[in-house]
């Protein structure tokens, strides 16, 4: 039965559309980035020079910024910067080793939401069409039926997200070579990047758990999506802003963001006597545990409901 559900999931139009959309998005982004970036380290030199010249022009202009009796030294922000200072800001080189991990972290959230939506649609469609009745007349053991949906959703969506992120890294590599720099691509970089893919994949699995769980509880795709996106767009932001200190560590989105950070985070603390100490904390362990508990709790509730409710 699990294999049948695997086949069904990958044959679904929604899954294929989302996958195609992601691949297209990565390719389009690559093309745009390719034309916007430059291999020349001095590609932004003219813009940097223009900025510095404009600053000097403003300082030297009659009556410009002379607000007090002290004269021109009252410039807010100090004297004008040099070209060397501002040049990095205009550098058009694509810095592969810096940009890819950052892009991976940023893309993980949309991919998590897509994994949630595809999983919700995967289960919700079966309820919506009434196909669940047919399925249960072929396999009446409901635990097996639910498990046969959970496993393919986890494996397919988790893998798909990791593969899309790996695809992003592959597609953008030539941009780093021809229109930027690949400096910094050490073994540690690849270890870090593959860790991010793994984490994004696991977060997609969590998204799939939420999608399957909510669609099983609601017996409907639209309701599951409404609850999910309503939480992300309304409930989570309101709660985290109203009771930030108390509830934020328990909310989904903050834990999601923390789970995508580096595994080890260095925090500088000041003691009561003014002594500074550095402390390394594991930033992703607690969110990972919390999200796992949330996912399992939702699936347990879905299973209990699915098992006990009539299918009419």
């Amino acid at each position: 039965m699990i294999f049948a559900e695997f086949r069904r999931l990958v044959s679904r139009r929604s899954f294929r559309l989302v996958a195609a959309f992601c691949v297209f998005g990565v390719l389009l982004g690559g093309v745009i980035l390719f034309f916007q970036s430059s291999h020349d380290p001095n590609s932004g030199l003219k813009q940097a020079q223009a900025m510095v010249a404009e600053c000097h022009a403003q300082v030297n202009a009659p009556n410009a910024l002379r607000k007090g009796p002290g004269g021109p030294s009252l410039l807010i922000g100090g004297p004008c910067p040099t070209v060397a200072d501002v040049l990095p800001g205009f550098d058009k080189r694509f810095r592969y080793a810096e940009s890819i991990p950052s892009a991976t972290r940023n893309i993980a959230l949309p991919l998590f939401l897509l994994a949630f939506a595809v999983a919700a649609s995967f289960v919700g469609a079966e309820w919506g069409t009434g196909m669940m009745t047919t399925t249960l007349t072929w396999e009446p053991r409901r635990g097996r039926v639910l498990l046969a949906k959970v496993i393919p959703a986890f494996v397919v969506l988790g893998t798909a997200v990791a593969v899309i992120l790996a695809f992003l890294a592959v597609v953008y590599f030539p941009i780093g070579v021809f229109r930027g720099t690949t400096a910094g691509m050490t073994g540690a970089f690849w270890q870090h990047l593959s860790g991010l893919w793994l984490r994004a994949g696991l977060l997609a699995v969590f998204g799939a758990a939420l999608g399957v769980g909510l669609a099983t509880l609601a017996r409907n795709t639209v309701a599951a999506l409404g609850i999910g996106f309503g939480y992300v767009a309304i409930f989570d932001p309101i709660l985290s802003h109203l009771w930030k200190a108390r509830f934020a560590p328990w909310l989904l989105m903050q834990n999601f963001m923390r789970a995508m950070r580096l595994p080890v985070e260095t925090v500088v603390r000041q003691s009561a006597f003014g002594r500074l100490t550095t402390e390394k904390i594991l930033s992703s362990t607690r969110p990972a545990i919390l999200l796992t508990i949330y996912g399992l709790a939702l699936l347990a509730a879905a299973y209990y409901t699915f098992r006990s409710r009539d299918v009419t």
Binding site: M1, A4, R7, A125, T129, G130, T134, T137
Partner: peptide, 27 residues
């Protein structure tokens, strides 16, 4: 036991053959 309950329901986006194929695999 083979059964039909009310109007038979299948995945509308799949062909008849694919629907039966999936059911055969399930059963």
């Amino acid at each position: 036991v083979g059964s039909i309950v009310e109007t038979p329901t299948f995945f509308a986006g799949f062909s008849g053959k694919r629907n039966l194929d999936l059911l055969a695999q399930i059963g």
